[in-house]
Design a protein around this nucleic acid. Structure first.
Lengths: 342, 342
DNA sequence: CTATTTATCCGAAACGTTTCGGATAGTGAA
DNA sequence: TTCACTATCCGAAACGTTTCGGATAAATAG
């Protein structure tokens, strides 16, 4: 591989000047720069990243720590994310390193090791919990990171999140407008921030319209079809306050609700109304809904680019206000919402 | 972060000696080494990988290039592999970097860029094709790599493969022994080496027992349930030589065959016999077989460790013979094989 | 007692880059 | 003529390691 020295020798220039020419500094003659560029190309010069890192103190690598778990190999979200982030970072000249924590490793220890090794410049964190230890640790050590989601309305770290409060608020409000008074919320696991935000949005919509919050109409769990199915059957079988509408955390849950409704002989939207949040996962095995599902929609795939931008920015030391964004969600009406039955 | 210089200053030793003490060289007093170790630990010394790389010329990073494709996010094999390799490499102190090729990128260009950047020491290649361009390119440029699979019986590069010839041979021979004479092979896509090897094993078993090779009993395709289903329906519907037994490339295909058999009102193993190869993917959504499927079995998860070993060895310049292995497969009898129907 | 070996140690160079602090020569202004 | 300024360039240091080629003193061999 050709080095700066090779070029400088060949052209009778100093290494300094060649370096500055290539890096676009202003104190180099345009004619000189042109020639340097030309020679560099002809010699197939590629800057040695390692050397560059040594002096800049940065490795150009960012990391993501993943804990091994049983469902791993069937988790479409994860692969989608890894692929998305990886390509975003590499198009920015950075490397995205996926680190799988060994079984039994303490998560924080993994971060510590990676940081101390000096190989990573920053981290991406997804699915933050309400009191997230990773965020605490990285903040304390002053290591750059970006979060997909957020643990409070206005956190003091870079993040990209969707308006989860709005997701549940709009869905709930829409149902209320149709006259529904008993609206169930089938939500993600309680300790996730996004689930907390959605619960808050749901409650806000209810209280704004004077409807009571009924805790037994809210379910938390892993956002899979089974959760929707089981929750629906339970909710519709219990005596008394049967919900006439469902707000679902994602389309898998909605699929479960559809199935349960069918099994119980209920028709959508005549007997039950359903709204879900759609992450627009490009998974071919995604369920098909009949009738068309009404959704709040925001493509997960649009978050990788800002996440990469924000982490890169954080590493470069950009001000926090440039590194935070809450994305709006779209409301897409289908045919799964009707007025209250009889 | 503490550096070698910090330690040397504190102890009144030279940087050289500290470095050698830490790296286990013989020309340092055991007592000195002990003290150095102690101080290093107390100062939380972590060697700067970047600096080390600069002089050693290695980055400690190995790469895997993946092309983006539609089914990506639902591909369990891929995530399983990424997770497996990633953890194997990191337990060896190396980083496994996943690189997603942008749509439209020429694969070879991606490798070129990564190599020239000097950031990667070697590559892992999976699912080699018969005339694999990646293998050609890396060989030509003399860049270390390891292949999961192989393009010829005894290739001149490091690889880990299972005995694919044996997989099909044993399954076929087993069926022949039960008296079957019309045995179908539902195989992977034709250009993959493993599919070619399995086809060869299938033919070998047939010819050894004097049975004719009937090309129309062989199907190639993407190894999914749909392939098994469609192939089976076609094969059993055609006039004349209907197969009485099926050798399936993986369990998904076998699932398709089971479904087709059921739909056609055929019973297993009375009417059709089935054998498949089982990669032992720990995917909870894996099909359940009734009756129990007879399989050739070899866990995919056992290949990551040797692959990592071999690539590390290749980078260190170990001799080729230490970097190749063909793993045996296990034959596990279930209840899906019977004798030829009346 | 001298020559050789052995056990420890160290200085300096090297890896390829960026960057700080000038140096030089030419230009225009005072 | 002298001064300040601009445009263009360069030497040297620095980043944190590893490693080559010795250096020193003590121990052993002859």
């Amino acid at each position: 591989m050709a080095t700066l020295k090779d070029i400088s020798r060949k052209m009778g220039l100093s290494v300094t000047q060649v370096s500055r020419a290539l890096n676009g500094y202003s104190d180099v003659n345009e004619e000189t720069r042109r020639r340097v560029m030309e020679v560099a190309k002809s010699m197939k010069y590629q800057p040695n990243l390692t050397a560059r890192k040594l002096v800049s103190g940065r490795s150009g690598m960012v990391g993501f720590v993943m804990t091994r778990y049983p469902r791993l190999s069937s988790d479409g979200f994860l692969l989608e994310m890894v692929a998305g982030l990886s390509s975003q970072f590499s198009s920015r000249g950075m490397q995205f390193v996926l680190h799988i924590a060994q079984e039994g490793d303490e998560v924080i220890d993994v971060y510590q090791k990676l940081i101390d090794g000096g190989a990573l410049d920053g981290f991406v964190i997804v699915e933050p919990a309400d009191e997230d230890v990773r965020i605490g640790y990285l903040t304390e050590r002053d290591v750059p990171f970006v979060v997909h989601g957020r643990t409070s309305a206005a956190p003091n770290y870079p993040f990209f999140d969707i308006d989860n409060h709005g997701v549940a608020y709009r869905a709930t409000a829409h149902l209320v407008k149709q006259g529904h008074t008993h609206i169930a919320l089938i939500n993600g696991l309680e300790h996730y921030s996004f689930a907390r935000d959605r619960l808050a949005g749901y409650r806000a919509a209810l209280s704004e319209t004077g409807l009571p919050f009924q805790p037994d109409l809210v379910r938390h769990g892993r956002m899979e079809e089974a959760l929707g199915l089981v929750s629906t059957v339970q909710l519709l079988s219990e005596g008394g306050r049967r919900p006439s509408a469902f707000v679902c955390g994602n389309v898998l849950i909605a699929k479960g609700v559809y199935k349960a409704a069918e099994a119980l002989g209920l028709s959508i939207p005549r007997d039950v109304s359903i709204i879900a949040h759609d992450d627009v996962l490009p998974d071919i095995s995604l369920p098909v809904f009949r009738p068309e599902l009404t959704v709040t929609r925001s493509a997960l795939s649009e978050s990788w680019s800002p996440l990469a931008d924000f982490l890169a920015g954080a590493i470069e030391g950009k001000p926090l206000e440039d590194l935070q964004r809450v994305a709006e969600v779209e409301f897409v009406e289908g045919d799964s919402v009707g007025s209250v039955p009889g």
